[in-house]
Write a protein that binds this DNA or RNA. Structure first.
Lengths: 231, 231
DNA sequence: TTTTTTATGATTGTCATACAAACTAGCAAA
DNA sequence: TTTGCTAGTTTGTATGACAATCATAAAAAA
């Protein structure tokens, strides 16, 4: 044991951070659907905290583009236009490809083991056709990749984009044929990672995000058409 | 005059937004240098607002990575490690190249005119060797490019990265030879824009960011070495 | 009945206080 | 020199207050 191991790192969780996490979760799981109006007082009651904390949490979520302030100052869960969603995927394609590339280049065994572990769990979930679990793990996988890049900037920027579309992931995976396709792309990527072929891994990741994007976009357009039909 | 022109858009500026702007400015101009500790009470006095507003402003700046909370909860202006700075430029290279590409593709005359206007002003500032003005305008130019992409996502993401390194811009431009080099790259880009050659414009932009990155990194490393020397 | 006014709440932005917890720094005691 | 104590700082959180704006329902006027 080294002297550094004595250092106490954990500070008591802040109420506002907890609030941010809870709200982020509520949004990404679809409990608060896009467009839902969020009223301060109600959030205070629901979370059991004061306005101070709720307001500070809102400022953070606002900066993360997860909530949007309307013309009357009222806050609602951001609704992602199909165009914005598509653009987020376009950026993700660039950033996550770069992340994988670095990850392979860094050749950190711990990180790579973590990825292969996650990948095996995902394969299990796929065989069981357990979409909710798969969705969660796909999120963890993406995060692990960003973290594995070893760059705080890549991690933060990528994660911010990821969080904005996380509520779409489940829908994306239920698009017909997407599961098989996604599996194939992941296979290709992990294969490249195992071979320590950074370029191939990056390209596989890019392809994966690209395909996901197409699935999402067609899904969102279908929804939009359905709405138009109804109105 | 059309009926839309009647719409009242401006809502009275919020105190906290004003505070955020002021603080952002103070950071990017170097008034608050990286590492400076920001004490709530002092900010309240300096800005003439209540703790509520300062705290909410801090949450936003925190989410933008312009300030960092330390282990004792105290907030200071983020110090960018050379690695982080380099990574920001790496992402900027990808994003701003994409932005220019779209900008050219959109072929929006108003936007392109704005750019050429800015470019001419920048040339003037270069001839006068007026670095502070040039720095400001380079920032405006970058923002105009991001805005001109027509994508809110590209704009927001790019701007966030831009703001994090804006305090480095002036230093970057005073690197020997950087002014001439930057001028050449901008020339090439604007030329490609005029020719409506999206690919060439994107490549020129990428080259520009890449060269800027190298200037910055060598600058930061020099600073770091000087510090090591001193200690 | 339809339109206009008025009154009543709701919601948000801002401020002022208050207090606890954690930390800092300096002084006193051993 | 070390230890222990004390007072002051800084931050996180809660609460209450109030103005401005907006929404809605009720009342008055046409």
């Amino acid at each position: 044991m080294k002297i550094e191991d004595l250092r106490i790192v954990e500070n008591p969780t802040l109420v506002r951070d907890h609030a941010v996490e809870k709200l982020r979760d509520a949004i990404s799981t679809g409990f608060y659907k896009p467009g839902t109006r969020l009223v301060e007082r109600e959030l205070c009651e629901a979370l059991g905290v004061s306005r101070t904390s709720v307001r500070e949490a809102m400022r953070q979520l606002q900066a993360e583009n997860l909530v949007t302030v309307g013309p009357r100052r009222n806050i609602s869960v951001t609704v992602l236009s199909p165009e914005d969603a598509e653009d987020i995927y376009v950026l993700r394609e660039m950033i996550e490809a770069k992340a994988v590339h670095r990850l392979v280049r860094r050749n950190d065994q711990a990180v790579i083991s973590e990825l292969t572990g996650l990948w095996k769990d995902m394969q299990k979930a796929i065989r069981k056709n357990d979409l909710p679990t798969l969705s969660k793990m796909a999120g963890a996988f993406n995060e692990a990749v960003l973290r594995g890049s070893g760059s705080k900037v890549i991690h933060d920027t990528g994660l911010q984009l990821l969080k904005r579309v996380s509520y779409l992931r489940l829908a994306s995976m239920s698009e017909p044929g997407r599961l098989e396709g996604g599996m194939e792309e992941w296979d290709a990527m992990m294969d490249a990672v195992e071979r320590r072929d950074a370029d191939a891994a990056a390209e596989a990741m890019a392809r994966h995000v690209r395909e996901s994007r197409q699935a999402i976009v067609s899904r969102l357009n279908a929804e939009r058409d359905a709405e138009r039909e109804a109105s």
